[in-house]
Each structure stands twice: as structure tokens, then as C-alpha cells.
Amino acid sequence: MTLAGILAFGLLSLGGVFCVIGAVGLLRMPDFYTRMHAASVIETLGAGLVIAGLIVQAGFTLASAKLVILALLIFFASPTATHALAKVAHESGVEPVARAREGEEAP
């Protein structure tokens, strides 16, 4: 395996690990607002590392340019979607847990 291949493997696998951590957080967190923070781990570090790994694998080609566009799309669009979710949830009266304890469900 070449050096670039090893680097790509490392980035891809690390990105996968952060995606799984984010998804575990999505299940473990006690209320909607805290779950949102877990999901943003997937959208930033998970997606970023996976796409970085693919760019290393592709080298300086048109495919990497498309991957950069994909990364920019995720980085510009995901905070907008997250903010929209948070705002509508707040307006609809979903209360954040003030001091969340383990295993407690949001009211």
C-alpha cells in the first residue's frame, strides 16, 4: 500500500469512528437539544474526515473537486437545517432539560 493509501485508510476509518460516536450520542442523549449536538459531530468531523480521506485517495482530479463541493454543501447547509430544527422545536414548546440526568426523558 502506498503512503497516500495508508493516509486515506486512516482518515476514512477515523471518520467512520466519529460517525458511529455521533450516532451513539443520537441514541444516548436525554433530550432533543442535546441529540442535536451529537448529530453535529456526524456532520462536521465525521463527514469532514471521510471526505478528506476520499480526496487523498483521488488525488488532484475532477473527482476531488466534486468532493470539495460536496464538503462545502454539507458545511453550509447542515447548520441551516440544524438551526431551523432548533428554532421550530423551540417555538413549538419543546423544553430543554435544565440539568439532564442519565436515563431521564425530556418532558
Binding site: 443520537l26 471521510v50 454539507i74 447542515s78 430544527l85 421550530v88
Partner: peptide
């Protein structure tokens, strides 16, 4: 349990599906 949890999960599924397509 709320609609927003489901929408958030759907959003995350979409992001992961994008990554899966790229891979």
C-alpha cells in the same frame, strides 16, 4: 419521541447516505 427527533434523525441519515454514495 417528538417529531423533531425524527426529523433530526432523518437529516443525519441523509448526511450519512451522502457519504456512503461518495465512498
Amino acid at each position: 419521541p417528538t417529531l423533531f427527533d425524527r426529523a433530526l434523525a432523518a437529516n443525519a441519515i441523509g448526511t450519512v447516505a451522502m457519504l456512503l454514495l461518495a465512498v
